[in-house]
Design a protein around this nucleic acid. Structure first.
Lengths: 223, 223
DNA sequence: AGTGTACTTCGTGTATACACGAGCTGTTTC
DNA sequence: GAAACAGCTCGTGTATACACGAAGTACACT
């Protein structure tokens, strides 16, 4: 093997393009495929054990989800998340999640039961220092809020937003694992405020929760 | 030819997959490829004059943009826009465009100059009864507002939203061409309010402008 | 006549082969 | 010695060939 890539190849059956897609996506999120790196179709097809065709399909899907850039006649490059892009993602999250919170509180349905379970699971994953799992659960937690608003189009939109951010979350947790305690506490506060249908309080908590962008940027010095 | 598809094949040079993508996308937006219809890889490759490979790539891109559904081992089907989805798209638009308007008014930069030009161009396209062009220009007009807020991530998100809606716009214009006068007037009012940095007024106009969802639904009886 | 089964057909899913262009390297020339 | 050009190499872009599975159909059996 010339270069080192993501760990063991998950042989999990299923369509070849799914295997390639999942392998590349997880590799990028976990950081094993670092930003700026060029991905070679032949190399990927050789490592995963499929032909170039499903690799190309995975590339296009990853490009649509902004994980990589496809340069014509040049190849695929893992995108780097810039500080500016991160700031914009957080701003967009505040807009969409804030809207969802207002909707949920207005409907007085309380926080979806799923959220409490996700908090517990996140605690366990955090204890195991499995930051990849933690970031995935955090993503599901926030998606649950947006999903509770009942607008599936907006939920899908929100989801594409998060896939851009997840790898940053993993890095931030690796660098500052102690922040997980704060995140956990804020998640619980948020559920309580949603159950109480207290819009103002829930929005306050959200903005506090999504505030530490500049901190994240300084930790990781992305761009 | 067994079945009828979009009009003449634009031979415009460039990558084969781009040709296929543009041909299919325009066919769907303009309505020549109606919702629910199954698309056959071989048929498309035969009509456009390329092999199946670029057709498959175009299919995947169109699926990511929600123009078609890719059913495993079944093929590609042109998505139908349901009334519920349309309602959700409009709600999402109100959220994002409303945010952008607030930002633009707060920055007091006035409406981007591009918008006035687009209004004029739209008038000309409307006089020519070119509804496809009108819908594209309307899309650019609204994107200009979102773009003026300066959040490129949010702008991209908004754009994927509009591609879902554009074909509905074309149908609505075909059914009620006289509404173009109202749309034109509201666009001018919106620009004026943005130039005056009058947030409240601009939001009022926006909500009026994006209100007639139920009307659109009843005209087209989508689902 | 109705139902079950096997065959055939068709289309996607994957692999492989070919074409083309960009970039690099070695040589040649000023 | 430096720059320009030619040839080569490598990787993407596209085409084609093969594999597999699902659905429809026809025939046989009950």
């Amino acid at each position: 093997m010339t270069t080192t890539g993501p760990g063991e190849v998950p042989v999990e059956g299923g369509p070849a393009r799914e295997r390639v897609y999942a392998w590349l996506r997880d590799g990028i999120i976990s950081g094993e495929l670092e930003g700026g790196r060029f991905l070679d179709e032949q190399w990927v097809s050789g490592v995963v054990g499929v032909s170039r065709t499903p690799v190309r399909e995975a590339f296009h899907r990853l490009e649509a989800e902004r994980f990589i850039s496809l340069l014509p006649r040049k190849g695929a490059q893992v995108r780097t998340v810039t500080a500016r892009e991160l700031e914009e993602v957080y701003q967009s999250r505040r807009l969409i999640e804030g809207h969802a919170i207002a909707e949920v509180c207005a409907a007085r349905t309380g926080a979806p039961s799923e959220m409490a379970a996700l908090i517990e699971e996140m605690g366990r994953a955090g204890a195991a220092r499995d930051w990849f799992a933690v970031s995935g659960l955090d993503r599901r937690f926030h998606r649950a809020i947006v999903g509770a608003a009942g607008n599936t189009v907006l939920t899908e939109l929100y989801d594409t937003l998060r896939s851009r951010q997840q790898r940053v979350t993993v890095r931030a947790l690796e660098a500052r694992p102690e922040r997980l305690r704060v995140i956990d506490a804020e998640h619980r506060e948020l559920v309580a405020a949603l159950d109480a249908a207290d819009t103002e309080e829930a929005l306050r908590i959200l903005n506090r929760h999504l505030r530490p962008v500049s901190e994240v940027v300084s930790i990781l010095d992305v761009d």
